[in-house]
């Protein structure tokens, strides 16, 4: 599956099928700081993601000051 990441913008190819939780763990990302979006819908941690899926992992932490 093609996974879009931000900060900085990049794309990685990850082998599916795989649960959301496992995908985040593989990329070393904390659930509390990210949302996983398939197409344009939010998915939960236990959702199974397929090879054909378009995935965006969106960071939710913002900083400043």
């Amino acid at each position: 599956m093609l996974v879009h990441l931000s900060h900085p913008q990049r794309q990685v190819e990850i082998k599916g099928p795989k649960r959301t939780k496992e995908l985040l763990r593989e990329l070393n990302l904390v659930i509390e700081a990210h949302l996983v979006i398939r197409g344009d819908e939010l998915v939960t941690e236990d959702e199974m993601l397929a090879d054909a899926d378009q995935i965006e992992i969106r960071p939710v932490i913002s900083g400043g000051r």
Partner: peptide, 8 residues
């Protein structure tokens, strides 16, 4: 609300 909840 947490940041993640607001982004969601």
């Amino acid at each position: 609300l947490s940041e993640r909840e607001i982004a969601a």
